[in-house]
Design a protein around this nucleic acid. Structure first.
Lengths: 341, 341
DNA sequence: CCATATGCTCAAAGCGCTTTGAACGCAGCT
DNA sequence: AGCTGCGTTCAAAGCGCTTTGAGCATATGG
């Protein structure tokens, strides 16, 4: 069933039927009701391909997600972010076009999207401190929103978590508990969020007249295995950390494994604070939060990012939207006063 | 730059330019070269909206992913599956349309995709033992492929892992090590894969003249927390299991936590076998596999599923494709002979 | 009573491609 | 010279919508 047939069956023109369905005011209410009823009965849905050509809008938003590193890992954060954004897209009538590309191919994907008009805008995730995608998208004239930001966050729209202050707070929290040997298990530090977290951590330590110790700092793709290996190595040093600051619940689980394996008790012998993205399958709340954490829902961020991006698409030429989310430190059972000695 | 302009700039008709670009044979090679060069120079990309309308093909494949349960969790398996499938789609020139819906809304999403022609086919994941989506999609006439299958796996195309035999083998492996009290930490058993795994587990136990003990069987959404809680409860029973069979690495991590927390050693006091979907961030291979596991890459499945589905779309009216993948049992450090007593 | 406005409806153009059917020029054959 | 066939190119139709501009009643006001 297409518009032409529907119109014929109603003895109306395509124009009138189209307008009735799309809520235009110049249709008599009685006519509109008739049209709506017939459309319903025939299960008529306008052909999206035709509609997109006619309107010049793709009603689609692109997410290009790069496979990281040699092993081409999928950042688990993407799933929850997509879930949040996807929900909003669906409500607003937008489709979500997912393009999964090997690391170097992102640029080609964006160029193609811009040239063939398959999307109205794109979402950019996990920017590096100096991310080339931003200049590219600006040049392409494609509306975009960055989740996170770059070192120089001017001239484009973004939504980010206050990573530096979160990790400064978390570090201070541990310092206040008497910890002096605090390790940082970070994400890859070419990524802006990780760089900022490191800066917050370092700032807090410097501000107490101490210096960060490179032996207690490690950064890599945030897997459980990385957390385990990094913590294991540090716990085997002559001078071991008494506390760990970790960038995600996933490596935190690995850190916990290393701690427990050595017969140490978390929250007594060793303290651990993690950032918690509130990932679906990494619940930190079985009975009260297991980990003390700076928390910020990646899914919530996805929702808000989608709202902003759609608004950017609908109203071009508006000033850049820049939104910074503070985190709160939730105290769980993984922290306690520094052990004596 | 559109086709018309490109054609004018070349003093050719749109027909010829279109044919040259699309590799039709009735174009002189010299002309084709000229056209290709000009297209390249102008960075011309055919407008995908127009092309889709003209060809009647969407060149898009839909994935509808439901948010599970009241907490609307995102199954972490989807991310890796998407990565595998997305790679193949990109190579074959297909777009991936992702529709994320609350649990009851999947049907509406499929109906809409079918009616408005936004996709050429859809991928179905995580089917229940008696999944209503299959009848629906057959009725809608939309090509589809199921990753997994239903209780009655006839009359449609699917690709599945041999879950029952995998868990039969794994259970036998534990039985052969002398274990008699084997627990099953399963996924939700309305899902077909979980039902089959349970059947394989039960079959192995019955075949040794024993009966499965309901106290040692639990099924739920496969989170780390669920694994932890289920194992903790079982380890606090009067009669505790000596081995755990777990449906995914994620709850397996929780089980390990419960075990270690009680001062027990995995592979000595307690054995654990898990199914390993080879998820990106849940690597089981730091230095030799930590967990003994039945292994099957969800990402590899995504790739193969994409290939099959595209083939189904390109050549309709072919017989159903049904592919069953065997798993291998990889022995890691989490299993050992049953402790005496 | 005419001019103007208003409410509703329609025919037709247009979105940017692909594809059909026709046409042209030229070689090869009769 | 005429016919056929081949290689190459083109004009035009069509995909299924939206949107423009026009038209026809009927109401409104001077």
């Amino acid at each position: 069933m297409n518009l032409k047939q529907l119109a014929e069956s109603l003895n109306l023109s395509q124009t009138t039927v189209s307008r009735a369905l799309n809520g235009y005011p110049e249709v008599r209410e009685e006519t509109r009701a008739r049209v709506l009823a017939a459309a319903q009965a025939a299960n008529y849905q306008p052909n999206s391909r035709a509609r997109r050509l006619a309107t010049g809008r793709a009603m689609t938003i692109g997410h290009v997600i790069p496979l990281a590193g040699k092993t081409e890992m999928v950042n688990p954060i993407f799933a929850d972010f997509l879930a949040g954004a996807g929900e909003v897209y669906a409500n607003e009538g937008y489709d979500l076009l997912l393009s999964i590309v090997s690391d170097g191919e992102a640029e080609r994907a964006y160029r193609q999207m811009a040239a063939n008009g398959s999307v109205d805008g794109v979402m950019v995730q996990s920017p590096e401190t100096d991310d080339t995608r931003i200049a590219l998208l600006r040049e392409l004239g494609l509306p975009f929103l960055v989740h996170g930001r770059t070192q120089n966050p001017d001239g484009y729209s973004w939504l980010d978590v206050a990573n530096k202050s979160a990790f400064r707070k978390a570090t201070n929290f541990l310092l206040d508990l008497g910890h002096r040997r605090i390790a940082l298990i970070n994400g890859q530090e070419n990524l802006d969020f990780a760089a900022r977290r490191r800066a917050g951590y370092a700032e807090a330590i410097w501000s107490r007249g101490m210096a960060p110790n490179p032996d207690w700092m490690r950064a890599d793709v945030m897997t459980e295995g990385f957390g385990y290996v990094a913590a294991s190595q540090m716990l085997d040093l002559a001078e071991t950390p008494t506390a760990f600051l970790v960038s995600s619940v996933i490596p935190a689980i690995g850190v916990r494994r290393a701690v427990v394996e050595r017969g140490l008790v978390l929250g007594r012998d060793i303290s651990l604070v993690t950032h918690d993205d509130v990932l679906s399958y990494m619940n930190n709340d079985a009975d009260g939060p297991a980990f003390t954490a700076t928390r910020s829902s990646i899914r919530g961020a996805g929702q808000r990012c989608a709202e902003i991006l759609i608004d950017l698409i609908r109203k071009p030429n508006q000033p850049h939207v820049q939104e910074l989310w503070e985190t709160e430190l939730t105290v769980g059972r993984s922290t306690g006063p520094a052990p004596a000695g």
